[in-house]
Design a protein around this nucleic acid. Structure first.
Lengths: 192, 192
DNA sequence: CTCGGTTGTCTAGCGGTGCTAGGATCACGT
DNA sequence: ACGTGATCCTAGCACCGCTAGACAACCGAG
């Protein structure tokens, strides 16, 4: 069965190559530039090969989005765990979130702006997405305040971060004041 | 010169027809369904006519976005002016904002999700966009709190609303708890 | 070692997209 | 009545996501 195993390894390797290439291309030139033809050319295979790994372009975007969700969850947890006290934790979380979005705009787009064919707020929500929300909940739940459901508070805080990230990204909010906005958000929303 | 005037009237009328049709089609079947061919067919003209009014599809989306910004500014002002006291005003504003986004998802997409080729946070920002922000500022400025710049506060509050609107729209936040989220947001962010 | 069959890949093409060049047609002013 | 200029349409370009069908390369059995 060694032959089969080798083939599976190669196949998995190529799948990672596809995703890495798609992501790289998207970060460099935007998702519009990620066409199946260009992507195929970059990985030095023909177009149909892509379809033996993914159902279509949507699924490629979705796969990149899941990667991003896992990375972001890790980034948020790392930042939060390195901070002392609830206030520092929440601030670090917010900064880490916005920082990730700013540094990986294409991945963030894949997660929230584009249609990656992913389900949400349902039973069949992919694990990385649920875990990313859980990562936020871990630090935000403790500052929800009395009588406020931690999940509801997390949703609102998350929505605020998402709004800041997207509006900043499209140039509607000047990037200079990001730090001031984060402080205002944490000061007001969190019950410390 | 009456002939020329009549032609200009007809031309303006046709331009409104294009925008109304694009918007209707987008609300019915999403922006993906708004192709130049379908749009041309619906207005009963050939494709190139569209290009005598707009540079391309982007500009059509942009024009719909500007319409939407004006409408939303009006909706927000109406809601705010009908409320007594700062707290009721801010709550009404938030509800009006989210309500407009929920009732006109395609227009909201044109404003914030799609590339309508519009400039922001710059000198050449179109008037309706600046005015929509001004409409928010009018009611939100008075609850910014001491030592907080009204514009900065408005940006943060707006971002939170935008986040709630978009995350709800794509199914990431369950719509049932919208009211609870609005109350939490107003309670915490606004200084009453 | 040969050979049948499976597995994998590519070429070619379909219907659709946004956009445009060039010709026909119509309505106007003289 | 007629030349002229504006207006509109037909036809086509290059590109898109996606797929059918031909072809080659490899595997295991005899």
């Amino acid at each position: 069965m060694s032959v089969q195993e080798r083939k599976e390894r190669e196949r998995a390797h190529r799948e990672r190559l596809i995703l890495a290439t798609a992501r790289e291309l998207a970060e460099q030139q935007g998702w519009d530039a990620v066409t199946t033809r260009r992507l195929a050319e970059r990985i030095e295979y023909s177009q149909p090969v892509l379809y033996s790994h993914f159902r279509g372009k949507r699924e490629i975007i979705g796969a990149v989005a899941l990667e991003g969700a896992a990375e972001m969850a890790a980034a948020v947890r790392t930042a939060a765990s390195a901070a002392d006290g609830p206030r520092a934790r929440v601030t670090a979380l917010a900064r880490a979130y916005l920082d990730y979005a700013a540094r990986n705009p294409a991945v963030y787009d894949a997660m929230f702006q584009l249609d990656g064919g992913l389900a949400f707020a349902k039973a069949d929500t992919p694990e990385p997405l649920k875990d990313a929300f859980a990562a936020l909940l871990e630090s935000l739940g403790e500052v929800a305040g009395d009588g406020v459901h931690p999940a509801l508070f997390t949703e609102v805080f998350w929505a605020a971060l998402h709004g800041l990230a997207t509006l900043t990204r499209v140039g509607r909010l000047p990037p200079e004041d990001t730090e001031a906005r984060v402080e205002l958000l944490v000061d007001r929303l969190a019950v410390l």
